[in-house]
């Protein structure tokens, strides 16, 4: 029976490790292939006229297929940003900056890291990440077809 002497250490430890195989699908497959060539491809629905990053096969609003591919510019505008100062399990060591950036020619914003930012003074660094600020896309030296092949820089 549980009693007043129950302590926080009175636990059974366990883990839940389940492996998954996620089908990439055609749209994401093309997006990742294009990253290897340093291109960022968005999908567009001719019905709604909306271009999407991250790309998807269908327009959530018109509920029609996205039937066009559009190449995004390698510059864009910050829509929202934060600098993470706390350490979370399984996430990068802080500090780091992330931002939703709407790339030129595309209607929606895509999240990625903002690199090369001096974050010794977080308040001052946030001053450089205000919505509306223009940023550039920078690719890694050897893109492998992963979303982390690129990031944003001021």
């Amino acid at each position: 029976m549980a009693n007043d002497e129950t302590k926080a250490s009175d636990v059974i430890s366990g883990e839940w490790n389940v492996r998954y195989n996620y089908s990439v699908g055609k749209v994401a497959g093309k997006f990742f292939d294009a990253l290897k060539e340093r291109k960022i491809l968005a999908t567009k629905s001719s019905k709604s006229g909306i271009s999407y990053l991250p790309p998807r096969a269908y327009c959530e609003r018109s509920f029609e297929a996205c039937d066009e591919w559009v190449e995004a510019g390698h510059e864009g505008v910050i829509e929202a940003a934060t600098i993470v100062s706390a350490a979370f399990e399984h996430l990068p060591p802080p500090p780091y900056a992330i931002a939703y950036v709407r790339l030129d020619g595309i209607d929606t914003a895509m999240i990625n890291f903002v690199r090369g930012l001096d974050m010794s003074d977080v308040g001052a660094a946030m001053g450089k990440l205000k919505p509306g600020t223009r940023v550039k896309v920078e690719f890694v030296d050897k893109p492998e077809g992963k979303v982390t092949d690129f990031h944003y820089v001021l």
């Binding site: 996620y22 089908s23 055609k26 749209v27 096969a57």
Partner: peptide, 8 residues
């Protein structure tokens, strides 16, 4: 189904 992600 190998050619679509679940969302598709």
């Amino acid at each position: 189904v190998t050619d679509k992600r679940l969302e598709e």
